[in-house]
């Protein structure tokens, strides 16, 4: 007794959004009530991430910094800036379990030949790359993250940017019912969180769309299911949980620049010689090194100057910070 619909129907076409987004919770709840005793992994759902992170199929990459020792997974997944889930570093790990990451799609529009709503599965290749990158936050701390992902250029090639396209704009999900930082009295930023790159930056082989770390799918607090990683820029450029990509002719607005234009520019390349107006960027604290970890001098373009320096030839980087 198998019923097959004539064609594939997405849940979003037949079910109200709030209902299908809650489906997982409902299932988990009823499963817990009915068969809790035989399925202990589903039974404890309150406040805990019940999402099982699948292993991802990967291959090595020439762009990976294999010589770097990755930061412990425990720290990468518990020390996050993801203001949609709270402004404390531990807030995202605590709160992001509420996020529904399946189904997921990205709307791609603007100056492209093939705009549309692309399902996650249609954008992410079956085999992705392992890429170990330095990650430098504008708050002067750093990690080394073993990402899993693919080049953003693969998406852009698929949707065919028009000749007039000069910039790529990104948008994070807005879903206050699942993202506690998006409701309440004091909201840290305007939503959606938006970011942008110049088209040549976006096409650069180092620019990654990450879907995992340490060989598994991204935990919610790290920007699941898909996020940007631009290793030579401060971390806030690497926008999380992306739902929209727009090709534009004008430089798109970016969230931290809107919040404090004097402090955060559009480019935000890691640069030890250009200080944040309120603190120095000359050196960085290594996360996970313990109480007495030695500070490390910050590298120009976060150590990727050889690969990306040409993108900014002739530009005054103190002006375009």
């Amino acid at each position: 007794m198998v019923f097959r619909p004539a064609q594939k129907i997405l849940p979003s076409e037949i079910t109200p959004k709030s209902v299908y987004l809650n489906r997982r919770t409902l299932l988990a709840g009823s499963a817990g009530a009915a068969i809790g005793s035989i399925m202990p992994s589903v039974a404890h759902s309150a406040g805990e991430n019940t999402r099982v992170l699948q292993k991802l199929e990967t291959r090595p990459s020439e762009y990976s910094n294999e010589d770097l020792e990755p930061t412990a997974k425990e720290y990468i997944t518990s020390y996050n800036n993801f203001y949609e889930f709270g402004t404390g570093k531990e807030d995202p790990a605590r709160n992001a379990h509420t996020l529904t990451v399946k189904p997921w799609s990205i709307k791609i529009d603007g100056l492209v030949n093939k705009p549309g709503e692309y399902a996650y599965e249609d954008l992410v290749p079956a085999v992705q790359e392992d890429r170990i990158y330095r990650f430098r936050c504008v708050e002067a701390w750093s990690m080394v993250v073993p990402w899993v992902g693919f080049q953003l250029s693969e998406i852009l090639d698929k949707v065919e940017p028009l000749g007039s396209a000069k910039y790529v704009a990104f948008e994070t999900l807005v879903r206050p019912e699942e993202m506690p930082g998006q409701s309440g009295l004091f909201q840290a930023l305007e939503w959606p969180y938006v970011e942008g790159l110049r088209l040549d930056e976006a096409m650069h082989p180092l620019t990654l769309m990450a879907t995992g770390l340490y060989g598994e799918e991204l935990p919610n607090q790290n920007g699941a299911p898909i996020r940007l990683v631009v290793p030579w820029k401060y971390g806030f450029k690497s926008i999380k949980s992306i739902v929209r990509i727009t090709l534009t002719e004008q430089e798109p607005p970016t969230s931290w620049n809107i919040a404090a234009p004097r402090e955060y520019g559009f480019y935000s390349n890691v640069n030890p010689r250009v200080d944040h107006p309120r603190w120095s960027q000359a050196s960085e604290r290594i996360i996970g090194g313990g109480l007495f970890a030695k500070r490390k001098p910050t590298l120009r373009f976060n150590g990727y100057e050889e690969e990306v320096g040409d993108l900014y030839a002739g530009m005054d980087l103190t002006k375009f910070y």
């Binding site: 425990e74 020390y79 570093k89 701390w141 313990g290 109480l291």
Partner: peptide, 15 residues
């Protein structure tokens, strides 16, 4: 707590 590793990824900052 800092020596016990209970202050998370960046114990210095917490202290």
């Amino acid at each position: 707590r800092a020596f016990d590793g209970a202050l998370g990824a960046d114990p210095m900052r917490v202290l």
